[in-house]
Computed example of a mutant assay.
Amino acid sequence: MQIVLASQSPSRRMILNSAGVEPLIHPAHVDEDAIIASLDGAAPADIVSALALAKAHAVAPSHQCNVVIGGDSMLLIDGHLHGKPHTETETIKRWRQQRGKTAELITGHAIIYGSQEIVETSSTTITFAEASDVDIERYAASGEPLECAGAFTLEALGGWFIDSIHGDPSSVIGLSLPVVRRALYNLGFNASDFWS
């Protein structure tokens, strides 16, 4: 019995590793843009949950005897959801818009074991620093935030530019240990069942 992470995110893997779990890594390949487009007008938490569930569903058939975790995070700021910026130019643009502001990072979790599935979101409030233009440009050039929801990390270089968080720090990094623990309990497991 193992946890299967339907993600190639090094941050999600790091959270599980730090918590004593060596997950199987089986990245899911889903058309995120199509899923988001199909949910036009849906609540932000519902969109993020749908993305996490699609990823878990893509991987679960190959791992019927294991616990599969799908996850997705997006930043809700000024009434708009933002995922990964993908480019330096977009990262710089977003940081110039979000510096000094407070936003909500929403992380969706879908945990599947056999025919059982649990979906839950975790929300954390983030206050961004008044980062300088030079720091924003250098941070974007580092490549670190390009594949991160909201164009930032908490645990690495991006930590310089986060003034405060209110909520679950592990959720900001990409996977809420409290959410996963509750799901495991509901599925009849203990968190310690998966420790290496």
Rank of each mutant, 00 (worst) to 15 (best):
L5H: 01
A6K: 02
S11H: 11
N17S: 12
G20N: 09
V21F: 04
V21N: 03
V21T: 05
I25G: 10
H26S: 15
V30P: 01
D31T: 10
D31R: 05
D33L: 11
D33K: 14
I35G: 00
I35S: 08
S38K: 13
D40K: 14
A42Q: 08
V48R: 02
V48L: 03
A50Q: 05
A52E: 00
L53P: 00
A58D: 04
Q64F: 15
C65R: 06
D72T: 03
L81K: 08
P85N: 14
T87M: 11
E90C: 08
K93D: 14
W95S: 01
A103D: 04
I106L: 07
A110H: 02
A110E: 01
Y113K: 03
Y113I: 03
Q116T: 14
E120H: 08
V134Q: 11
R138D: 13
A140M: 00
S142H: 02
P145F: 03
L146G: 00
L154C: 06
L157A: 08
D163M: 13
H166M: 13
S170D: 11
S170C: 13
S171E: 04
V172L: 02
I173C: 01
G174C: 08
L177Y: 05
V180N: 00
N190I: 08
N190R: 10
A191Y: 06
W195R: 10
